[in-house]
Design a protein around this nucleic acid. Structure first.
Length: 601
DNA sequence: ATGTATCGCGCC
DNA sequence: AAAGGGCGCGATACAT
């Protein structure tokens, strides 16, 4: 068994796919227990890795191997496919999964893992990372001389820490699969997503003008400061707004924490209470308008590289195992709100391509159905049946109340109480409680499963789904988090199952993943084949064990888009501006059109 | 200068 | 006893 631990010093990490061939600067590797060898010759390193039975690195799939694959032609797909790669980041997340929230963000660096294991950590100088200090001293990670002894010593230590840490981390079938998943998803980062650069600039300019007008109004009418990017959120601005509410004759709305609430629900509630207060209507109008101004266009622009594309980071860092797509965050672009849906139109297919989005149908609920094995719940997902209609029959005895049944599904997966259901469904507390009772009565195995998974979480602090993914559950939050963790975590693994089933030729076409949706840019003349291949990959029967009743996993494809919004033109046919052809018209007769009503040049 | 918390926008 | 889960990102305030 020949094991190689290695690490590479590079130019700035966020330039992985854009820097150029000198990105990899200095490599360190160790064979077995042998000494750490340093080299600037990446071909030498690649040869060593090709001949190894085990290739070990921290964030190997996302970074070191990715860099060698991109700039030096290493066949990482082969290494991963043969199960020869050990990525200690993926292994550490699996053996010690993160809690939700931001607390755990720094837990998985090599240094943090070493410290938790009571091992020697990475090299530091005067309390900060030696590497960071060198980058500051020489003016950039790509300016540190490769013969600098401190640089070399830092790298040697890194490889030695890695070697120590790796002996504590186990490997299993799930991890083997996870390595392949992440290698496949990395194509999103590598190939990037084409940006409509001119349109980004145009919208930024237009937005700056809108904001300037709104800020001028806030200053003139209510005495807010006019400096800073968001004067309405500064201390002085908040004080002025509180005075403005009082001047309108109303008590300033408050958040739970007692500070001034300016979110849209609070403002809507206030207007409901005082429908005839003209001064209040004006104040709320300006506040709403300025808080609706989002910065996603700026964020996309900031992350657009010189190749005119964004190369977002893709990682399974969320507690549920869900995939984060960040820098820029593509999971948050508009879709449900008419005012924001055109944010996606800034992202384009490659020249000669079309964009196609594929989404899994009610996949969280199907995941729960497969796990609980409730016959009535599973039968709602039989081919040819409509899940929400079946739920309407079970809950109300009336297939016509499909829309009333929809919000209840969230209650099934997320442990929603009567209060929350009443609020989200717009019904009374009593009716909500009675719905929840009906749910438990009609789907007894579902109720039993939720109870069981909560108990498991209380005992172990973790739950495991049928794929073998562990999800950590916060103490005291088992009631809501545990069932949700099975739903989300399994939905994630079902989508990844589909990604693993994609033919290799489609991997460079991957552009984005948004939990239950993947987006591909495919050559127009291959669109038929691509659609067929993706749907074949994403759809299958899911069985949690050999004797269990299977649940069908189904997917739908979008329209072929000339931009990402354009993919949804049929789905959102009430919003004509979603259709790129509509945006090419010089005018339109829909008074609410967000394009002709404001965004158009 | 850098990091965390809070708030607010949005998404699945 | 009651309990809707998971995120990204920007702006500000404040601590270090």
């Amino acid at each position: 068994m020949k094991t190689v631990c290695f690490d590479i010093e590079t130019a700035s990490a966020d330039e992985l796919y854009t820097y150029g061939s000198g990105f990899c600067r200095l490599a360190g590797y160790a064979l077995g227990d042998g000494p750490v060898v340093l080299t600037t010759d990446m071909d030498e390193l690649c040869a060593v890795l090709r001949s190894a039975d085990r290739v070990v690195a921290h964030n190997a799939i996302g970074f070191d191997l990715a860099a060698l694959e991109h700039w030096h032609g290493l066949d990482v797909g082969l290494l991963v496919g043969q199960g020869r790669v050990r990525d200690t980041l993926l292994m550490a997340r699996h053996i010690d999964p993160p809690l939700s929230g931001s607390i755990d963000a720094r837990r998985y660096g090599l240094d943090a893992i070493a410290k938790r294991l009571d091992l020697v950590g990475k090299l530091t100088t005067g309390g900060e990372s030696t590497l960071k200090g060198l980058a500051d001293e020489f003016g950039g990670y790509d300016a540190i001389p490769t013969d600098d002894e401190r640089y070399r010593a830092y790298l040697v230590q890194d490889v030695e820490v890695l070697r120590e840490v790796s002996t504590y981390l186990g490997f299993d079938e799930y991890l083997r699969r996870e390595h392949q998943v992440m290698w496949r998803l990395n194509h999103i980062t590598r190939y990037g997503f084409k940006v409509d650069v001119g349109e980004v600039q145009r919208r930024l300019t237009a937005q700056a003008q809108r904001v300037a007008v709104l800020r001028e109004s806030l200053g003139r009418l209510y005495g807010l400061p006019t400096t800073g990017k968001a004067p309405q959120r500064s201390k002085e601005g908040i004080a002025a707004l509180e005075r403005a509410f009082v001047d309108c004759g109303v008590e300033p709305p408050r958040t739970d924490g007692g500070s001034l609430a300016t979110n849209k629900d609070a403002l809507a509630a206030l207007l409901d209470e005082h429908p005839d207060n003209v001064a209040l209507i004006e104040l709320v109008g300006v506040l709403r308008a300025i808080s609706r101004e989002r910065s996603v266009v700026q964020t996309i622009g900031d992350h657009t590289a010189l190749d005119g594309r964004v190369h977002p980071s893709v990682a399974a860092r969320q507690t549920s195992g869900r995939i984060s797509v960040t820098k820029p965050g593509l999971t948050v672009l508009g879709k449900r709100d008419r005012a924001n849906v055109l944010e996606r139109s800034l992202l384009l297919p490659d020249a000669g391509d079309v964009l196609i989005a594929f989404d899994l149908s009610q996949v969280d609920a199907r995941a729960i159905a497969a796990h609980c094995q409730d016959p009535a719940y599973i039968s709602a997902f039989e081919p040819g049946k409509d899940y929400h209609t079946e739920m309407a029959v079970e809950l109300f005895g009336d297939p016509g109340r499909r829309d009333d049944a929809k919000p209840v599904t969230h209650a099934t997966t997320y442990g929603m109480g009567a209060k929350g259901l009443a609020a989200s469904a717009g019904i009374g507390h009593f009716e909500a409680q009675s719905l929840l009772n009906t749910l438990d009565a009609r789907f007894p195995e579902l109720a039993r499963f939720k109870k069981e998974v909560r108990t498991r979480a209380e005992r172990k602090g973790l739950v495991w789904n049928a794929f073998g993914r562990p999800v950590r559950i916060r103490r005291g939050s088992e009631y809501t988090q545990a069932p949700a963790a099975i739903g989300q975590g399994t939905a994630r693994d079902l989508m990844m199952e589909g990604v693993l089933r994609l033919p290799m030729w489609l991997l460079p076409c991957l552009r984005a993943i948004v939990h239950d949706e993947i987006v591909l840019s495919v050559p127009s003349d291959l669109a038929d084949e691509a659609e067929e291949a993706v749907l074949r990959a994403l759809q299958f029967n899911f069985r949690i064990s050999s004797g269990a009743t299977p649940v069908p996993i189904l997917a739908e494809k979008s329209d072929r888009g000339r931009d990402w919004s354009d993919c949804y033109r049929s789905e959102k046919d009430r919003w004509p501006e979603v259709d790129r052809s509509h945006r090419e018209l010089s005018m339109c007769d829909d008074a609410d059109c967000t394009w002709h009503g404001g965004l158009a040049p």
